[in-house]
Design a protein around this nucleic acid. Sequence first.
DNA 1: TTGTAAGCGTTATCAC
DNA 2: GTGATAACGCTTACAA
Lengths: 339, 339
Amino acid sequence: MSSNTEATVAPRPGGRSSGAPTIYDIARLAEVNPSTVSRALSQPGRVNAKTAERIRVAAEQLNFRMNPSARALPTGRTHTLALLVADITNPVVFGIIRGAAQEAAAHGYTLIIAESEESGEREATDAVRLIPSVDGVILATTRLDDDAIRRLASSKPLVTINRDVGESVDSVLPDLTIGVDAAVAHLVELGHDVIGYIPGPASSWISERRREAIEHAVDERGATLVVFDHTSPTREGGAAALDALISSPATAVIGYNDMMMLGVLQEAARHGIEIPERLSLIGFDDIFGSDFISPPLTTIRMPLFEAGRRAVRAILDSDGTDGLLPTELVLRASTGPRV
Amino acid sequence: MSSNTEATVAPRPGGRSSGAPTIYDIARLAEVNPSTVSRALSQPGRVNAKTAERIRVAAEQLNFRMNPSARALPTGRTHTLALLVADITNPVVFGIIRGAAQEAAAHGYTLIIAESEESGEREATDAVRLIPSVDGVILATTRLDDDAIRRLASSKPLVTINRDVGESVDSVLPDLTIGVDAAVAHLVELGHDVIGYIPGPASSWISERRREAIEHAVDERGATLVVFDHTSPTREGGAAALDALISSPATAVIGYNDMMMLGVLQEAARHGIEIPERLSLIGFDDIFGSDFISPPLTTIRMPLFEAGRRAVRAILDSDGTDGLLPTELVLRASTGPRV
DNA sequence: TTGTAAGCGTTATCAC
DNA sequence: GTGATAACGCTTACAA
């Protein structure tokens, strides 16, 4: 190995010239030590301004890109976050993804999105597989049980959205009261005094919270609540639930999410059941499609974009989960006077 | 408060107290050399079966997870792929994402999804930023120009979907003929002899291909083609185009994609313009919502899931882009007899 | 088949 | 403020 002035590097016995420029190339060009380059690049201020500028120029000239793996090895920080969602076709995750992606980018972080297609098992596998390569994990619509979540949270910073497993795990949660109160008040004003709720999967923590909020608002107004069976939060689930709805005394029904209510609406149309004349319908989430299905679906919306941002902030700044996110009633045409 | 495992660099030569088990820990436990552990883990077969088993057990016992950064550093392979999409809220990308994610997982690869929110500039930035940390890039709905794509393709394996920039870059493309011929035949049978096409963005390569295919099919059947102005592939774009449609001689219109046709349909409903009585409408993609908007949208579908899989295969196996993906006409209620 | 050792590109500790 | 150098955890010739 014929070395010139470089004493530290004794490269390639195998003869693989790597191609991409490294901080050593910059160092040579700027006539400084590689360690100085490293400092200039990652801790601006810890280096003489003129030196830093020379390094900046050299880096620019070489079109230098920092090798993320090399950076991650000694620091343990990958500058990458994982966002786990149960179903990427559910428009409810769009806002979360966008908010999270934006906030992550603002911090120089990369976001890995993994979809489990509603399988808790796959979610767990993905989480375990991804954890070594990320600095934190966001569970956006998790199907994991509390223990599994706590276990994951013990190995890397973790934040849940719409799920609370206690003090030990950070979470971004909605204040359901505002939206739910408005929704129930709206229904009661329309004359409905028996109101139904279709819960989502039994494993859904937020479904239970929604039920509680509705129950409270219904009680407060002297109306009656009917709770239907747990239902898959899909269009198929909603379609399958229609029979139960129309044979119940409820004249207005709130569903666990918009997706299932879309199914209810479609199935109702198929059977010539008029909405809202026969049944008033309200969902949660305000997803894509809720506004153009017919009739357009009245729904309770949560600021998803902000939820995504907060989740990222909670991981990177160790804050951002303060306070609950406000919910809001979006009035459309699936609700009407009791006939 | 979440527990944050701060992985600081161990300053001591002998000390490996950094928390996560390494191949050295396995080596000690299995009483072999670390290099043997490495071999056993990455190249099964290059190691004695009994030794390999001992190593497997030790790894299991320690709950070992390979450090991806450490693995990537000497090899240059990150086992990660980037999938760039223009708009994650467009249901057209779901299938691609799922197909790509599944195929990637099957090969032990992780998928990074980046959304540019329709900004070509941001797409370019993301690509440049992500390239050092991935083994390949998939451009699913790119807004980049040919040169930019070729430039990216020269630094890492790259595949485009619905975009052809020539021999130098692999691509996954549809055979538009089947679906488009069926669509045009369908319209002509219904009595339409003046057929319109609403192109997407001027920068969309596939929009032009769709136009050509339609033109060809229309010519073949002795009908006439009317091409409207370039239109944003969004609901807003479609809504804005409605005026032009109804004031043209065309009695049937094919749009660049379903998303814009959803906008046309909504705007038509708002103005009391009956579909399909007044205008027959066809889109491309068969996205979420096309089936439940009213009337449900007739559309030309491409196997998106398969497209995603092929794109990944093209990168990992250096094949998989052979042949075109078949398209298919999905008949629904937005097309009807010419009145 | 397995052990030895030289890197991969960066950061961080220590001197100077 | 800057330079030298030892890690970080893994792979891979080359030897044995």
